[in-house]
């Protein structure tokens, strides 16, 4: 396998779970509507988050009970759907953040141990 292909595949797999964490973290500060969320996530460097990916993800999170939605009329455009974390979502986010920090920490330790050798 070409190393470039291998890296691309690895990045896709990593990003799948990573994107969920990003979305939940983006909502940790308060409710946001879909378009706003999409704009914000689109600015993340290297993630290339598109609406084609984001909205199905948001729908899945809602079906899993991690986020809740509400509609609000907008004067300028279509009605906006606001997303907010549910209690379950907050609890899940807490655990996910802790888990990712642990993983990063373990990866860092492994790398430092190799360098000492």
């Amino acid at each position: 396998m070409d190393t470039t292909d291998y890296q691309l595949n690895w990045t896709v797999q990593l990003r799948r779970g990573w994107l969920e964490l990003c979305v939940l973290n983006a909502l940790a500060g308060g409710e946001r509507y879909g378009y706003d969320l999409a704009r914000t996530l689109a600015t993340l460097p290297g993630e290339n988050v598109t609406e084609g990916t984001l909205y199905p993800l948001l729908s899945r999170l809602r079906l899993q009970g991690l986020v809740a939605t509400r509609l609000e009329e907008s004067s300028g455009g279509p009605a906006r759907k606001y997303y907010a974390l549910t209690a379950a979502g907050r609890h899940a986010l807490e655990k996910m953040n802790k888990h990712i920090e642990d993983m990063v920490e373990q990866t860092r330790r492994l790398r430092e141990h190799k360098e000492r050798k």
């Binding site: 879909g34 378009y35 609406e51 909205y55 199905p56 729908s59 899945r60 809602r62 300028g76 279509p78």
Partner: peptide, 22 residues
Amino acid sequence: KAGADPDEVFANWRAHIGEETA
């Protein structure tokens, strides 16, 4: 297959296009 509600996603895309074109 991805576990999403297609109709909800379609509505979101529609709203998104509405925001973009507004």
